[in-house]
Write a protein that binds this DNA or RNA. Structure first.
Length: 530
RNA sequence: GGGCUCGUAGCUCAGUCAGGCAGAGCGUCUGGCUUUUAACCAGACGGCCUAGGGUUCAAAUCCCUACGAGCCCGCCA
């Protein structure tokens, strides 16, 4: 297809038909670690926002943290002491680590930091502050007045009949601090107060300002109007018929007289083959973990390359390498106006830090250097890469190191063994002879480059070479008649250094190791007969 | 039971809105790079577009049905 329009631009075009001024909103409840799945919502919104700006729209981007939602249960990552906080708004619960202002800030703060890294800069609102400031007061009054109409909408669209004592407003109990245990008994529109009884036995009166919260199905449409939201992505959990977008759409039109925002429904992110990512099942990769491992652009790219309504299969092990590879390749293409370059634009995050070293290559450099940064720099320099941007190389090396620690499959890992690997006992006579002759030559030679090592290994099969001659002499064979398989020689090297049959490109790999070490190791291996 | 979304090469996905020759990357294979296993370059292989029906001069694309996957319908992001 010659002309592919990125989905974000399609969305922008669609949205622009409705007007030039837009406010893109997104909201996540900080009830637990905010993971890659949640990130899809924010990145989706950000990309739509950027596309709107690029098309000349007057656009804003806001993020509402639902800090006023009650804690639903004691999550697996919480200790039992949190049982008494179940039902209280997240903003009113103590922080699990004691270092943040509240429970919600504990989870929100790292998320906001991650947003910065991802180049996402929304205006951040906290729901508890909005309620306490009175932003929702009008909406609360309307909702209380039109309680029956709202109940009828919910009944009609979702098929569920709200209980007789149902109210769109959930008061916050003065005594126990819970928000989901109270019942509304009455209200005073002039005084802006609501009367309640609580299952804890308390009864009293709370202000509409900060004394409670609209139930979710009403809170959402009320927020659209109060904040002027015109575009909002949301997970498919809200998207089914009778779901909260459906009822919200009706409530905002019929109760609040406001047009619902343009919907962008997005699918879940599946983790490897463990299923959908979700905090409650514990199938979670947190954003900060991911940022330890890959640059933010790659994370954005992961989300941007797939249309929102398709699910994304995400696997932080081997497939992550392919993703990075693909991104790096894309990055090198320079074809302005193409679909590919549009994706690069949309992947753009905060302060670009670029090196020309591929992630994949760094995984071998890193391991050859045993993770030591000075040695990494030496290898990088010898390999001919640009070493001016030391900080970026350090970032890349850190990412790679974390990836190797956290996610790398075993076949991608190797380590230079401190002791001669026992596998050396399986070496053939030919291989042993090769290793010892190879070591002898190393003793007499100066510094060898990667290519020198490479050629030296192959020279074993060249009758005119010194290596070949030495091997023939040692084996008592005639020079021209000895047949040497380079493949087996490579194996001998890998076995004696790594204890495995294969490894990274032999030439530069050997050149990244100390020559004295190689001589010693090859001689040990050649003579190893347990 | 009702609903939403998805199903395209071995894998990950574009292309479906607006019908017009079936696409990309990865993997695999072959060749090249002075002889490389996990660098690089070139090429090839690879498809009943989940299945069946319908509309059309023409369908991966639109309509209906079935199957498969995931999720929602419990006021629970």
């Amino acid at each position: 297809m010659a002309d592919i329009t990125h989905w974000a631009d399609v969305v922008a075009d669609e949205v622009l038909k409705k007007g030039k001024k837009h406010r893109v909103a997104t909201g996540i409840t900080p009830s637990g670690h905010i993971h890659i799945g949640n990130m899809r919502e924010v990145v989706t919104a950000d990309v739509a926002y950027r596309a709107l700006l690029d098309r000349g729209a007057e656009a804003e981007f806001i993020y509402i943290a639902d800090t006023y939602d009650p804690l639903r249960k004691v999550y697996p990552f919480l200790d039992e002491s949190y049982a008494r906080h179940v039902g209280k708004p997240l903003s009113e619960i103590p922080c699990p680590c004691g270092e943040h202002k509240s429970y919600s800030e504990h989870f929100l703060e790292p998320f906001l930091v991650a947003l910065e890294h991802l180049g996402i800069h929304p205006t951040v609102y906290r729901a508890d502050e909005l309620y306490k400031k009175g932003l929702y007061t009008d909406a609360i009054k309307t909702a209380l007045k039109k309680r029956d109409e709202i109940a009828a909408i919910l009944q009609k669209l979702s098929g569920k009949t709200p209980a007789d004592d149902w109210s769109p407003f959930n008061p916050l109990c003065n005594a126990c601090g819970k928000i989901n245990t109270t019942r509304v008994n009455g209200y005073d529109l002039d005084a802006e107060t609501v009367d309640y009884t609580c299952s804890c036995g308390d009864r009293g009166t709370v202000p509409m300002k900060g004394g409670g919260k609209l139930t979710w199905r009403v809170d959402w449409p009320a927020r659209w109007k109060a904040l002027g939201v015109t575009v909002e992505p949301y997970g498919k959990d809200h998207a089914s018929r009778g779901g909260s977008y459906d009822t919200g759409q009706a409530i905002t039109k019929e109760i609040y007289g406001y047009e619902p925002p343009f919907p962008i429904v997005y699918e879940w992110i599946m983790l490897g083959n463990e299923g959908a990512m979700s905090s409650s099942t514990g199938v979670v990769v947190s954003i900060s973990d991911m940022l330890k491992v890959v640059p933010p652009e790659v994370l954005r790219y992961l989300i941007i390359r797939t249309k929102p309504e398709k699910h994304i299969r995400f696997d932080p092990a081997q497939p992550l390498l392919n993703l990075v590879d693909e991104f790096e390749r894309l990055h090198q293409m320079d074809d302005p106006g193409s679909y590919e370059s549009r994706m690069i634009e949309l992947s753009h995050a905060a302060g670009l830090c670029h090196t020309d070293i591929p992630f994949k290559h760094m995984t071998t450099i890193y391991q050859a250097a045993g993770g030591d940064f000075e040695r990494i720099m030496n290898i990088v320099e010898r390999a001919g890469y640009d070493t001016k941007n030391r900080k970026c190389i350090k970032e890349l090396a850190d990412n790679v190191g974390n990836w190797l620690d956290m996610y790398a499959p075993t076949f991608a890992k190797f380590s230079v063994r401190d002791e001669l690997p026992v596998q050396a006992s399986s070496l053939s006579d030919m291989q042993r002879t090769f290793l010892s002759s190879f070591a002898d030559i190393l003793v007499d030679s100066g510094e060898l480059s990667g290519e020198d090592y490479h050629n030296l290994v192959y020279s074993a099969n060249d009758p005119a070479s010194e290596l070949h001659a030495r091997m023939a002499a040692a084996l008592g064979a005639k020079s021209g008649e000895m047949k040497v398989e380079p493949k087996d020689m490579f194996k001998a090297i890998y076995i004696s250094v790594l204890g495995q049959q294969s490894g990274p490109k032999a030439g530069w790999f050997l050149s990244s190791l100390e020559k004295d070490f190689l001589i010693r190791r090859f001689r040990d291996a050649a003579g190893y007969r347990p």
